[in-house]
Write a protein that binds this DNA or RNA. Sequence first.
DNA 1: ACGGGCGGGACTGCCCGTTGGT
DNA 2: ACCAACGGGCAGTCCCGCCCGT
Lengths: 228, 228, 228, 228
Amino acid sequence: MEGADRAVVEAPRSLRHRKKDRTRREIQAEALRLFAEKGYQSTTVEEIASAAEVAPRTFFRYFPTKEEVVFWSEYQPALADFVDARPGGEPAVEALRRGLVDGLAVFYAEDHDRLLERVTLAYRTPALHPRLRQQQAVAADRMAEILAGRLGVAPGGLEVRAFAAAMTSALWVAVDEWQAHDGVGDLGALIDRALGTVLDGSVATAELPRRARTATASRRTKRSSSRR
Amino acid sequence: MEGADRAVVEAPRSLRHRKKDRTRREIQAEALRLFAEKGYQSTTVEEIASAAEVAPRTFFRYFPTKEEVVFWSEYQPALADFVDARPGGEPAVEALRRGLVDGLAVFYAEDHDRLLERVTLAYRTPALHPRLRQQQAVAADRMAEILAGRLGVAPGGLEVRAFAAAMTSALWVAVDEWQAHDGVGDLGALIDRALGTVLDGSVATAELPRRARTATASRRTKRSSSRR
Amino acid sequence: MEGADRAVVEAPRSLRHRKKDRTRREIQAEALRLFAEKGYQSTTVEEIASAAEVAPRTFFRYFPTKEEVVFWSEYQPALADFVDARPGGEPAVEALRRGLVDGLAVFYAEDHDRLLERVTLAYRTPALHPRLRQQQAVAADRMAEILAGRLGVAPGGLEVRAFAAAMTSALWVAVDEWQAHDGVGDLGALIDRALGTVLDGSVATAELPRRARTATASRRTKRSSSRR
Amino acid sequence: MEGADRAVVEAPRSLRHRKKDRTRREIQAEALRLFAEKGYQSTTVEEIASAAEVAPRTFFRYFPTKEEVVFWSEYQPALADFVDARPGGEPAVEALRRGLVDGLAVFYAEDHDRLLERVTLAYRTPALHPRLRQQQAVAADRMAEILAGRLGVAPGGLEVRAFAAAMTSALWVAVDEWQAHDGVGDLGALIDRALGTVLDGSVATAELPRRARTATASRRTKRSSSRR
DNA sequence: ACGGGCGGGACTGCCCGTTGGT
DNA sequence: ACCAACGGGCAGTCCCGCCCGT
């Protein structure tokens, strides 16, 4: 019961704060609209500001960078927290897997379309990838902390960090796959497959079939840079 | 074995290219000197250019961005290639682990100090983290290709990508740990530990000790932002 | 003699004013601390405000500009007033010279270190030079008024203004010299030498030694910009 | 003969340079026009840029600050150089006085109106005073160098610097007086009076008439801040 | 009066397309 | 024909003003 409270019911903010949040939402809405219309790169902050009827200077008061307007959400989901909320009896990996699925329920519930819009925009805009990866890095750090907590070890240890980073990376591959199919398909199942692959060494211990060597070599040439 | 050769011995470039590389090295040397003196952020491209006695515009002809001057190396080692060069008989995970260690031998051999300087600069400069993570993402993609090749499956599959991403992430944690200790310590051993942690599931299946639950909960409040 | 008193003993301000002055001192103290740590330019008003635990807006209520926080002093000495306080029998130039020395006694007495800190900061920070020179200009105007009063002529006259400006300029050169040596050495003596040089014409009427002409000409090329 | 060359005939610049100078003149012309129309402060750089048909960014390539557009002149007169050009036989003070008058001849000759416009704008716009005073400070430093050269002493000496600063200050009072009367009247004569006042201690040694004391005191209240 | 929100203008840094000179 | 310089564009930061509510 208090668990639900913690996640959803916020203290009724002061009127001042409410107004600020409204402005922030307003700016984000206009920005996303413009991004959809003419692309992220070719939309300038000045255009966003004037569409939202604020001064350019004000835009930067609400969002420290242009990227942030894509990544901000009024209910910061913090996937890792759902892992933290799992009961203590579960093995770490189980808590991790189930915690993420718990989180997704909220994801799906709240404003599904807006969320999908932001995620696809982030994944499909090269200029946003740096920021996207930072998000992942933060998530990995957070995950390491939580895991360390569950296991009773120091959070800075190589093993914990490595494991947390590996899990988080696999997770994001699942999200990538999900958005690549425009959000159709069950994200939970994708995550299960992604994490599972790592956990049961099915891929790891497989041997190389005879003919594969050459196939690999020929594929090397058609790499393309995905930068910028 | 000739596979490894292919990665290292380059066709002797045309004289033209050699001259360009010399200029590139020159610019990089001046840039790294200035970065060490006054920091990455507070060194402007203009300063680098004038120190290297080229026009600012010319700087960008040699390096597409300011970041690149840190990441460029005349012998791009491409860790993934060393994995590719492992004999076909090995299980995938073994090839991966040993391939990386092979690569490190080259790393250590070639201009160890300059390399360490660039790596530590990249890891300790927040402004360079985005580019650093992109490097990792590219490595993960490459790894997925190679693994897919060895296993005879399509490189875009969720499972392969997830596994490759996970391994790569763990790898970079090891590198981070290594540079955090200023390059003392055996990078190979660190990598072994990092990858091993993921592969043998020791962390994954561990259960939560009795007292840990509460410790975790109490730790939640004192989170500090590690951004910027 | 009571003239001197008038300049120093202030009516005991209302309690309101006292509180304001205390806040002002508080802000100034934090600002000077930050300036010493990270330089004037790279310290933002916002940082100062938050260090002094006031709103940024409030900073500007106490100090009209960021510069002012360096130049403000709770006992504004107003050098010129000390000249004004000299007895009427003295020749103008004598009053001027002695008045300044009188003022310095107070300077030295009151919080010598804080004063030196502010003065050296002002002199060594290019961004503060404009404000510093304005200070000098105001002092020159005030001096012209006082001289005009002593001589019974209009204060706007060319001659009086020129003379006052000349004296004031020479005075500040002495101060500059003093701070350049970190405040060691007798400021009074430096001022005597500076003013004396102007008054006795020793420099003015000296002739050019034989060889100097060419030396001058050759020196012209190696001028370096001292700006910024 | 080469003396004249040095001052007037420049090496015929490359076409590139000529074009740059033309653009610079163009920007300055538009800026001064706008300043005259609507005042310095209320003219934005953006307006100037668009009037001159360049990008705002380009404005700053030509003039590092908005102030500079007022102070720049294609033939930098460098008053001090004219002092330097006086024959070696003259006493220093005589060279100084005559050198300045020599310089004025050129001033008057070249585009008198434009010059007067810039000078009056600078003197009558409080926002430009800081920059104006910096100009004076640079002139004083230059003067100290030249005097030191003529006298065969080090240019950093207190006496030389003090004397040079004093002379320069007096000089600028004369210029101020001149512009205050809209440029009518003989600037040369004003300068003679200003410098003369300092050199023959007429003001310095005068005694205070009986009644002056009180006059001074009463005047003290009506001081007004000339800031901003 | 005091804090806060907001606006605005100067200025900088990175990066890129174009053009003109050698 | 190349290639450096010129000019442009956009994000972002800082100082400081105005107006609002308290």
